[in-house]
Design a protein around this nucleic acid. Structure first.
Lengths: 238, 238
DNA sequence: GAAGCGATGTGATAAAAATCACGCCGGCGG
DNA sequence: CCGCCGGCGTGATTTTTATCACATCGCTTC
């Protein structure tokens, strides 16, 4: 029962899997509890696992020599991720930092490979999923490169609304708190710049704050800034 | 016979395929000649083909409302590309513009799907390839976001050297001519900025020009600027 | 060989974004 | 209740990058 709060979730990055195949994947998972601040993997670690978020939040990051960090993705409940190359021994290029105490299902590469060999239709859905994730990366790349920092921020707010938004009337509540520094690291800007851009958006009544959560009041304004093309919601994510 | 010119090519984005499987793919291709300036597909077109470059060059681009354009990829001989989601009806987010008269093998989605169903090992190699392409996008994304425009340019020069470089002694000749505007569109900068950055690199003897081709004289300098981690060459491409 | 054209080179200036330097607020632990 | 700390807000300044405005160069074309 949803009452007046209609969640925009239910859109996950695993929507390309059938119920049946998703549960096949779940059968080969081993559940782990991991606590905020720990790391699932570090760059350089061998990439031989997939991760499924039952609960919690994880960010995929990269840190430069000077200590600046960049958040490539943020994953929440229902998301599947990992450096995704089945049948390949490769190495992580990014870090996976646990942001909140989380419950995560871990799939071993060899178990996945066995399953993919056994079930052709799962293999096909897996390819769909890989393709979807790649397109997500590509469209984010475009948004962050082409429209300046304001465009990058607006794109990120729209993506947050698809990943974590709950709609009420014409407002969208972003149900995860994010610091300005985190937002900055998601778009390759500084905390101060993000702060000023958010202030401007507040002045224009494009967004507002409700006990430290961002509320989107005018998503069309955001869409306009980053020339949003209304991509499918399972692709336009954080 | 290579004599003193040792090509760095032979590294292609299809290296994850076995000879046998690559020739299976070639069997279902239909060869087309396309001329410079034409488009293989436009954003919005349905994405139901794969393309294999026999000869020539294609760039994948996006144009903003104000007319600025961004080059996401450039593909040359031996490269396979396309919006890559088998078993999915999706739509292109980018344009594919033919840069030189080209000979391109086109694979229809349904032919690919049949082949993938028939040959499990090809499906597996196809997944490897998809994963490799995604990692290429991710690492480029990182390079272009984290190290300023000079870092983005240096990363691009390194990637060009992996895609089109020929090594002689300590020099690497980039065998494709690129205008400063093209370089600019690859890194989200302006022609003038690229021009000034290239001038600086020339003054430092990091690069030189040999009849309008870039020659890399000191790749370590470039690596340092973009904190290059010496990723596998089949991943670190344009 | 003059005109036209696309590409390069470069100064001057403007805009965008980062950096530096604080003050402030709210929660938390002693 | 006080001190501390992490996060926020905001001016002033600097750095980075884009914009504008031309000059030049090499090539093609008539």
């Amino acid at each position: 029962m949803r009452s007046c709060w209609q969640s925009m979730e239910g859109v996950h990055n695993t929507d390309c899997f059938s119920e049946e195949n998703l549960s096949k994947l779940k059968e080969i998972m081993y559940d782990h509890k991991v606590s905020a601040g720990s790391y699932l993997f570090w760059e350089g670690d061998s990439a031989d696992k997939l991760y499924f978020m039952n609960q919690g939040r994880v960010k995929i990051t990269k840190t430069s020599d000077e200590g600046k960090s960049f958040i490539l993705y943020m994953y929440g409940q229902g998301d599947l991720f990992g450096q995704l190359d089945p049948f390949q021994q490769s190495v992580h290029n990014f870090n996976a930092e646990v942001m909140e105490d989380s419950s995560i299902g871990i799939i071993q590469q060899r178990d996945l490979e066995t399953l993919l060999w056994q079930h052709g239709d799962l293999a096909i859905e897996f390819m769909k999923w890989m393709g979807l994730m790649h397109r997500m990366t590509q469209t984010k790349f475009r948004d962050l490169m082409m429209f300046g920092k304001p465009g990058a921020l607006c794109s990120t707010l729209i993506r947050l609304s698809n990943s974590y938004g709950v709609r009420q009337d014409n407002q969208i509540f972003i149900t995860k708190k994010l610091t300005n520094s985190e937002l900055a690291d998601m778009i390759g800007a500084t905390r101060e710049s993000v702060n000023r851009m958010l202030s401007d958006l507040k002045k224009l009544n494009v967004i507002s704050m409700e006990n430290n959560n961002i509320v989107i009041e005018n998503i069309d304004y955001l869409r306009n800034i980053c020339q949003c093309e209304n991509c499918p919601k399972d692709m336009c994510r954080i």
